[in-house]
Nucleic acid binder design. Structure first.
Lengths: 340, 340
DNA sequence: CTGTTAGCGCATTCAC
DNA sequence: GTGAATGCGCTAACAG
């Protein structure tokens, strides 16, 4: 039987209210009473029941980041940044996992769980527009991700099209003429990250007047390095000529580099490679991976601002959702050649 | 004003209890009543308040994994495995971050937060024995990690000494004579992961009759690839001869490979490298990283069994803490030479 | 099959 | 500066 405030109160010879006041520090309490209470807390090993406080207060001072899966380094790094940002406002971050399955919805995560938090940052990777549309909830939610999503949600994303365009343009400017897309789903523009990044690749080609060969977009998963390696193996096996690769994520790029090494192709001499996401580890690949930095800190600023706006909203207030696209930038390292 | 069960009850012309019964499905409810309730739920947009349920039930069906920081791929992969395992018993995993600072304690995480969960898996990386000793809580806690920790906690770890011994023995058996330790803290055995893995390295040398040179343990951080690269740079700069590297984590190994490439040293011809942890990405490094697999699934089995034992404990029960060391195994890939 | 009563542990409101 | 009453939203136990 857990020790409660009343237990502490009884032991200290005061009322539960006084114990509460001592612990929250919200009201002045006599110095002597205060010490008696703290002693009792200590002796009984009392531990505050946050669940009860939450029920009472209606707030938890906790934000959840919902990610498709815990193992993606991308989200781990994002979470770490968000957590740091929340600390300054005395709040806490918790990471929940949804599940980015083919069905795409919040599978493992019941809608009710969202109420355990003051606000939720929801990564919509793997969810469809409709999944989210049905998620009509009272919890403050800001969407993070790429897909086209219901207008009524605040939505922050990075500029995928521009990032991929920049990256591809660099490859073309430094001599590549046949740039493969790894992780690209052809004809899927606007729908999801792969589509948008593939679109950027197309635009860069159009801008540069370089024709596109559909064979340069091998069918491929986007999950992990294995998909990247497999895509390269396939290109090689099917004798598709290529002298550049836009890997749609750094994780894929890792596999691409592995595949190229296997095939005896030199990077960047035979094939230039550029990734997307700028993971912590990318700088340390061999050669160091050129990539697109997603500007996480800017995204996070926006996302938390929008979330707080929802959290602090009073009943009458009508907030129009914002849809923000954060800037990206090129990070050139060893897998690409220097610009002319 | 959020919609409550009573609101739904009123709208459906029943009592709150009936609404509860419909939603939990724990009691039989007439088909028609049931439909009326569900309709009302839908129309009012009712969303269950889990906080209230938790307060009432005293259980949350949620387990927390407390990690030192969200960005370590190691913990992300561990979390993903645990989450999968919990799903089969209908429970949910949440990842909390403590903070592995020099002070080491649960910093960002108040003790009370632990009560939000049925049980807690606590990664004690970066915490000291005393930090944990002071953490006298009623919440079921199982420790995951390497340090020497208070006896009274269940504690699951991998066999760090044996893993490092196996790895080093392989390097020695395949011709390396001067094996550097990257991330090793000299003279720190028993205290923490680096100490234990360094101990395994020593034992392998003793077994093989190869003398140890303290210069082979360059001072180094253990945080990320940058530390691994820096350690190699230092060895090269100080002209320490070495023909093998035991990187204490795969993350460090990533930096080690980068540093060796920089220095023009070939892997494994000039220098063999072996890591520890078997991260998802390690297989895709160039060359593919040989490493020690931590046997996560076995660890998780033990940890959850011990945790459930605590969770289900009745008041009288006296459970003696277990201290379990799970087996590790060698994964040989391209950064080492084949055994004789 | 459905309703009533009561209470999980805390903190707001209002007395004193 | 301290205490008593009350309710946050839900559900177990027991009636009917």
């Amino acid at each position: 039987m857990p020790v409660t405030m009343s237990d502490v109160a009884r032991a200290a010879g005061v009322s539960a209210m006084t114990v509460s006041n001592v612990l929250t520090g919200r009201k002045r309490v006599g110095e002597e009473t205060r010490r008696r209470v703290l002693t009792a807390v200590d002796e009984l090993g009392y531990e505050l029941n946050l669940t009860a406080r939450h029920l009472r207060a209606g707030r938890t001072d906790t934000i959840a980041l919902v990610v498709p899966g815990f193992h993606h380094p991308y989200f781990g790094e994002l979470a770490a940044r968000i957590a740091r940002r929340l600390e300054v406002s005395g709040r806490h971050l918790v990471v929940e996992h949804g599940g980015a399955s083919r069905e795409g919805e919040l599978e493992a995560l019941s809608l009710a769980r969202l109420h355990l938090y003051d606000g939720v940052l929801l990564s919509v990777v793997g969810m469809t527009h409709d999944d989210v549309a049905h998620l009509r909830t009272a919890v403050p939610v800001v969407l993070l991700g790429e897909q086209q999503m219901p207008q009524r949600y605040d939505h922050v994303r990075m500029d995928n099209v521009e990032g991929a365009r920049l990256a591809t343009a660099h490859l073309l400017a430094t001599g590549s003429r046949r740039v493969a897309v790894v992780g690209g789903s052809p004809r899927d523009a606007n729908r999801g990250m792969p589509g948008m990044r593939t679109l950027g690749w197309e635009i860069a080609h159009r801008d540069a007047g370089v024709p596109i060969d559909p064979a340069l977009v091998p069918p491929s998963g986007t999950d992990g390095p294995a998909d990247g390696r497999e895509a390269v193996r396939r290109l090689v096996r099917e004798k598709v000529a290529f002298d550049g690769v836009l890997a749609l994520t750094d994780t894929l790029a890792t596999g691409v580099l592995a595949g190229l090494a296997e095939a005896g192709l030199r990077v960047p001499d035979d094939v230039q490679v550029i990734g997307f996401d700028n993971l912590d580890a990318s700088e340390f690949l061999v050669p160091p991976l050129s990539t697109v930095d997603p500007g996480h800190d800017v995204m996070i600023d926006h996302a938390l601002r929008l979330l707080d706006r929802l959290i602090e909203r009073r009943d009458g207030d009508d907030v129009t959702p914002e849809h923000i696209t954060g800037p990206v930038s090129l990070v050139l390292r060893g897998t690409t050649r220097a610009a002319g």
